[in-house]
Structures are given as C-alpha cells and as structure tokens.
C-alpha cells in the first residue's frame, strides 16, 4: 500500500453545559476541520454533546504506566491533605 495514512485525532466532548470535555475516542482525518466534522458524525448521533475538541494524537504526551508508583504513590501518605484528618469539636457543628 503506497497511500499516505491519515493522521489520528483524539476526540473530547462536552456532554452538557457546565461539564468538562471528556475523551470519547479517536478518529482519522486529514486536518482538524475534517476531524471536527467526522467527530460530529461518529460521536454525537444521539445528542451526546454540545461542544467538541479534537487534538492531534501526537500532540499528547502521556505519563508512562511504569512510572505510576513514583508519580502517584507519594500522595497516598499525605492524609493531612484531606479535611477528615483534622479534628473539630462536635459542638462546633459542620465545618
């Protein structure tokens, strides 16, 4: 096959007002404009969205799953970052 391949785009959709855009999948298109059109046809046939973002897949830098522990483990021991860590006298009520 000598044909050049179409680039890959990641598709993000805002499903309702007030929500953030969420990754829904990917598709191929020659440019961002076509990616938007295709995303509309492929991912919003039943009113799933109010807004679409498309991003060239190559533009996304992902963390390496192998670094998972190094990156995210340290947060587990820092329980003082959560409100439940602190004691408030009962008669003070909700805080």
């Amino acid at each position: 096959m000598t044909e050049a391949n179409w680039p890959l785009f990641e598709v993000f959709i805002r499903s309702r007002g007030g929500m953030s855009h969420r990754h829904v999948g990917s598709l191929h298109a020659v440019d961002a404009e076509m990616a938007l059109q295709n995303a509309r046809d492929v991912y919003t046939r039943r009113g799933e969205g109010l807004s679409i973002w498309v991003v060239p897949s190559g533009a996304i830098k992902a963390s390496d799953p192998g670094d998972k522990d190094m990156l995210f483990e340290p947060a587990n021991s820092k329980i003082y970052r959560h409100p439940t860590f602190y004691e408030v006298p009962e008669d003070v009520g909700n805080m």
Binding site: M1, E3, N5, W6, L8, G25, S26, L27, H28, D41, V42, R45
Partner: peptide, 18 residues
C-alpha cells in the same frame, strides 16, 4: 460508526487502520 469505534480500539494495540 461501530466499525470505526472498533478499528480505533484495535489501533491502540499498535496496528494501523491501513
């Protein structure tokens, strides 16, 4: 559309659509 969702899922495994 189903075909496209599925090709996209397969492509995450390091094969191209082509």
């Amino acid at each position: 559309g189903h075909g496209l969702y599925l090709y996209a899922a397969a492509e995450t495994l390091d094969v191209t659509r082509e």
